[in-house]
Computed example of a mutant assay.
Amino acid sequence: MAPPRNRRPGFSRRAQYSLFAGYVVAVAGSLVGAVLLALSTLDPVAFAALRASVAEVSTPLSSGLAGIGRGIGSIPSGIGSYFAVHDQNAALRKQLAAQHALFLRARSLSYENRRLLALLQVRERISEPVVTARLVSSSASSTRRVAVLNAGSWQGVASGQPVRGPEGLIGRVLETGPNSARVLLLTDPESVVPVRRTRDGIPALATGRGDGLIDVKSVALTATDFGPGDVFVTSGIGGIYPPDVPVARVLHRGRDASIARAFTQADTVDYALVQRAFIPPAPPIPVPTPAPKPVAAPRPPKKKP
């Protein structure tokens, strides 16, 4: 049924008052708007003062209402954060318990290692530092990658000694003078360093490319996959370089070979440490096994007369 066209409130006084109040508010709003428009046009200074006064009065109220709105709106996120923090706390407690178990195991292994070393009287051979000197120059455009050290034979520097910086290995001394020495950098094609991968001990060889990078080639009997971020340190095999000195980090994925970047760049290093050549521990001397003594044959018993 269609609604009647007559929308008069009839005899309901409440409806009449509501309609009258609506008219009054509309007329009053129109008058106030007209007055403010005229005031802003005729007297901008007075209008600006009035606007500032209204803003001062309404700011606390609007701030309170905004705070109430933010508080109501943050209730769902707060509930979600509570459950998320509870789950994260449980996961962290579990991880802490696992790390504590690993810590106890590592401490036990460290104690056992020290005890065995003391029992076997094993002496670790660590390369002693010779001198700390400044790298005064390095070749960046030549095919040979060498640097000049401002220390030489008068300071105890000798050919073949390893040179390292704060971040890792730089190279080895190539030749010396009285107060200077030439250092063969890791990136030189003539540089070959025995290395191993830190996460699993896979042996490899780090060879310079001549372009500022290093080729890392596996020498393991099985196929080896290299991934970006693999770290290689010196293995100590063959002498010269002490073990566990950072050498390079792999840049690209490869199989049995990959390209890496040295941790230490000679053109960014001010001072370098020259060490004595590393001497690997000598193989154990075999102890001769004494030959067994021949067993004498038993004598026959004497006959009585």
Rank of each mutant, 00 (worst) to 15 (best):
A2I: 10
V193C: 11
P294S: 08
D270I: 07
S40V: 10
R123F: 06
T264I: 01
P76Y: 01
L169Y: 03
R123C: 05
I170A: 01
Y271K: 15
R125S: 09
P283H: 07
S142Q: 09
R145T: 04
P9N: 07
L104I: 06
P60W: 07
Y241M: 08
F83I: 11
Q95E: 13
Q88W: 05
I214G: 02
S63N: 14
E175N: 09
F11D: 13
T268D: 07
A66N: 14
G64Q: 15
R209D: 10
T289M: 12
R164D: 03
I259N: 08
G67E: 14
L149E: 02
R8F: 13
P286A: 12
S191E: 09
S258D: 08
T268F: 00
V45C: 01
G67A: 14
R197T: 04
D211F: 00
Y271W: 15
Q265K: 10
H252K: 09
R13H: 14
S139I: 01
L251Y: 04
P194V: 05
S58K: 09
G165A: 10
L36Y: 10
A2S: 14
R145G: 05
Q275R: 15
R261C: 07
L92V: 12
L39A: 12
R125V: 07
A90N: 14
S40C: 10
D256F: 05
V148N: 06
R13V: 13
